Simulated scan of single mutants.
Amino acid sequence: MKKTLIIMAVLTAIAFQSNAQYDKNVAIGIRIGEPLGLNIRKYFQYGDKAFDVNFGTYGFLYGTTRKYRKGEYQKSGLMFQGLYSWHYAIGKNQALKAYYGFGGQINYRDYASEGNIIGTRQDGEKHVSLGPAGNAGVEYDLPGNDVGIFLDGGVYTELIPDLLFLHPQINAGIRVNLVRR
């Protein structure tokens, strides 16, 4: 698990530096929903592409106890997600933007198998899963400052260990641009 997190951190750092010649616009914010946590966004070119890194919980809002494989998930877990997205202005003032993106997600969560009677092992088995994720949404940049609010939704499709397990993801949040374009 530690090696996977280190690899993901290195890939994230490379992605944030690889296209620095276009923009130096970086935003940080919070996501409320599924996943719940921290969002860091690096814009590329002229703001029409971005890379989002999300750290937070998985299964906190809904699905804390959910049927999974031959048992169920227990509690919420940790999540790391990276999404590359494309952005399009809606209207002339460019304050409202639509976006969609794709990437990957790694989760760390407790799993209680069918043979494990709930309550006998309260923590269940530690479980790592991964698969692709996608989302689409809208963002509104508040006039006169560097704050944007957003609403998006998407899906995580697990590939390992449970092929094609789907988990919907819906978020609202706020981001602050740390470096202006």
Rank of each mutant, 00 (worst) to 15 (best):
L38R: 05
I30L: 15
T12V: 06
G131H: 00
Y84L: 01
V176T: 10
A133H: 00
D23N: 14
G82D: 05
E34D: 11
I170G: 02
R69L: 06
I40D: 00
R41W: 05
L178F: 08
Y140I: 06
G56A: 12
N39D: 12
G144K: 12
T157R: 09
K70E: 07
L159Q: 11
R109D: 12
E139H: 02
E34F: 03
E125Y: 10
I30C: 11
S76G: 13
L178A: 08
Y99T: 00
W86Q: 02
A133E: 02
S129R: 02
P143Q: 04
Y140K: 13
E125P: 09
L83E: 09
Y46I: 07
R180D: 09
I90S: 12
Y68N: 10
G47S: 07
G56S: 10
R121D: 15
G104R: 13
I106C: 04
A20P: 06
G154K: 14
S113W: 07
P168C: 03
G137D: 07
Q21E: 07
V155K: 06
N25W: 09
D23H: 12
I149T: 06
A89C: 02
R31S: 14
M1K: 13
V179R: 01
G144H: 07
R41K: 15
G37D: 04
M79N: 08
T64V: 15
G137A: 05
Y100K: 03
A98W: 01
K67C: 00
N135F: 03
D141E: 02
G63C: 12
F102Q: 06
Y108T: 03
L38H: 02
K3C: 00
R175W: 01
